[in-house]
Design a binder for these strands. Structure first.
Lengths: 146, 146
DNA sequence: GGCATATAGTTGTTTATACAACTATCCAAA
DNA sequence: TTTGGATAGTTGTATAAACAACTATATGCC
């Protein structure tokens, strides 16, 4: 017996991700307002490079949940913006290792603060334990489908 | 005192909406596997027309949380697929009312079943009360930012 | 009635995503 | 050592989103 049978009329927001769309748009506006000339998608790549610099494009695919062509083009655009640099791997000539530039390192502090600000605004009025439940449910959804 | 201060390293999934991306991709695959030649975005427009047929493009913007150019092009593509028809409003010549075709009406049952199936798979193992909390939190996020 | 302003929709441009097809390289088994 | 399959990355094409600029129509105010 499915314990989670979805009543019709309630599934729309779950599927279309209105909440995360709202968060991403809001953060993009903050980036623009701060004069930061990057997209949320570009930021999401930088995000993982800030955690670990010099990883391969394939590792960026896994980390950002994007396919290879998407990462190819995001890295293309980040390179044009001089925020990352592709360095051919010496051990495996199929791979590019992607490195942050000095300029990208400087973006971390400010953009992470804006992200935190945006999330705090988004979650205004939501008790911490409910946020925790929400995060856990979304993690299970991801694990169930990925 | 912010009760929802976000620990760094936890914000990524919330912002990028990995869960809803996973749901949308999964549903798209089911559509493709069933030979249904529509995108999730097109489906999301049909979804609202199934609830109320013959609404304006502006109303579709509000319902689907998209801007006007996005709806213009989605309706363009849906018209090419002969799933909707623009009908100029008689009372206000600026407006187009968008109507489902017979063909689109026939899609409702099957696609809604696939959507329900996808969500049940996504939420497998999640108790109903936790789903409820998650939905409420996401609704608040949307309301806080929209 | 005439004009300013708001609203509905379209078009142009850039960026991003999905999928298929492709090249180059690696690796392992015959 | 050759060969066949797997892996890393790129390119082509279609769809979609965000933003700005635009046209056409409506509305409210003098």
């Amino acid at each position: 017996m499915p314990n989670n049978h979805f009543k019709r009329g309630e599934l729309y927001s779950f599927i279309t991700g209105k909440a995360s769309t709202a968060i991403a748009r809001s953060l993009q506006k903050r980036f623009n307002a701060a004069g930061l000339n990057i997209t949320i998608e570009q930021w999401s790549v930088l995000y993982h490079l800030w955690k670990q610099d010099g990883i391969s494009q394939q590792e960026l695919c896994n980390a950002t949940f994007r396919d290879k062509p998407s990462i190819t083009r995001l890295v293309d655009n980040l390179e044009k913006l001089q925020l990352v640099k592709r360095v051919p791997s010496s051990s495996d000539r199929r791979m590019n290792m992607v490195y942050l530039t000095r300029q990208a390192q400087k973006l971390q502090e400010e953009t992470m603060n804006l992200a935190e600000l945006t999330l705090n605004e988004a979650l205004e009025g939501v008790p911490a334990d409910r946020i925790e439940v929400c995060k856990e449910v979304l993690q299970i959804v991801y694990d169930n489908l990925k």
